[in-house]
Computed example of a mutant assay.
Amino acid sequence: MQKKFITSVLIVSALMLGGCATVSKEDLAEVRSLAEKAAADASEAKTMAADAQSTAAAAKTEAAAAKAAADAANRKSEETEAKIDRMFKKSMYK
């Protein structure tokens, strides 16, 4: 991705400079500077994406743990409700 972007920037710059009769060292330095900045931006974006992926994985793990806890609490609630219902029915028969 990063190499494609740099290549694209260099090709576009070369085409733009191709229209000129002469290419100065300053122009080439500017193109090189733009390409290096693009590479740095791409590297930063890659790092940010990796951080976001790591955070998402941690959130997914926490969500799974929370779901497991909620499921366990729901089962316990259902068991307690059934127990109370049995106790009530038993008291009604006496």
Rank of each mutant, 00 (worst) to 15 (best):
M1G: 05
M1V: 00
K3L: 08
K3G: 09
I6K: 01
T7S: 10
L10R: 05
I11N: 03
I11W: 01
V12E: 15
L17T: 02
G18K: 08
C20K: 12
T22G: 06
V23C: 02
S24P: 00
K25G: 12
E26N: 08
D27F: 09
L28R: 04
L28Y: 06
A29C: 15
A29P: 10
S33R: 14
S33Q: 09
S33C: 10
A35K: 01
E36A: 07
K37L: 12
A38R: 13
A39W: 00
A42H: 08
A45I: 10
K46N: 14
M48Q: 14
A50P: 04
A50Q: 13
D51V: 10
Q53P: 06
A57N: 06
A57D: 05
A57M: 04
A58S: 09
A58T: 02
A59H: 07
K60I: 01
A64F: 00
A65G: 02
A66T: 05
A66N: 09
A69E: 13
A70F: 08
D71W: 06
A73R: 03
S77Q: 08
S77G: 06
E78C: 11
T80L: 04
E81C: 07
A82I: 05
K83V: 04
K83E: 04
I84L: 07
D85N: 05
R86W: 06
M87A: 15
M87L: 15
F88S: 14
K89E: 04
K90F: 14
S91T: 14
M92G: 12
K94A: 13
K94R: 13
K94N: 10
